[in-house]
Amino acid sequence: MDVLIEPLGYAFFTKGLLVATLSGALLGLIGVYIVLRGMSYIGHGLSHSIFGGFAAVQLFAAQFYILGAGLWGIASALAINAVSRRSRVGADAAIGVITTASFALGVALFSKFGTSGPAFDNALFGSILGISTEQIIGLAVVSALTVAFVLVRYRALLFTTFDPQVAEVSGVNVRRLEAALMVVLSLAILATLTVIGVTLVAAMLVIPAVVARMLTDSFSKMLVISTVVGAASGLIGMYASYFAGVPSGTMIVLVGAAVFLVVLALTGGRGLRKTAGLDHHPEMVTAATR
């Protein structure tokens, strides 16, 4: 027990633990919608895209960090959302180009103007160090916003995720709701970027949701389980990261992956079968092309 309490004596660790747990929960919650929409790839692209803005703002206008990176993230999200609606022009290719170019820009900026190596590594793989109070407040605000969004727009979000075409006919403004979801997603990625890392955020969007899907057939339960699995991965991963002396994002993702393997072993093929179809959505294609 002392082993677990000892690191809590350090302020940086308690901050890190709080942020990691909340980040895991936030990504777990929103990840349910991302995974059920077959948008895992978009989450991955978006985090890379945001990295460009993150680098630019941090290096040249640090005082506008939150605002600048936030605007960049929202712009990326809306651009990707617009492109992905036109599936016939090769959304995958377009998203791939936009996001990797933005990522490359971030790498170039960091290499040329960055002070030293660690900041760059931290951005890529997550770090427990240097978490500011502003970041904690930012994360708390984004989390509250996300929970409010999911509660208030619960049915409309569920409807557009399951059946966007009929949702539109039934009076749901699908376009606006999807744009709002992308904005919330980009804010969530931005708020969790420093602790999880650019390259690993997508994993934390996917793993808890897939684990939850394997454990339940109910949508509301899936939201709860995914949030809890995300939070637990963040909490345990942060401890593991402290003791192993490796970047926090890597350990959080590895803990998530371990949970996935345990659940896979417990549920067997039955659980895995439930995740079939998570990656292909005929409806997304038809709705956009018809």
Partner: peptide
Amino acid sequence: TVDWNFPIT
């Protein structure tokens, strides 16, 4: 047009 594996009753 929908994914029948979707987790809903």
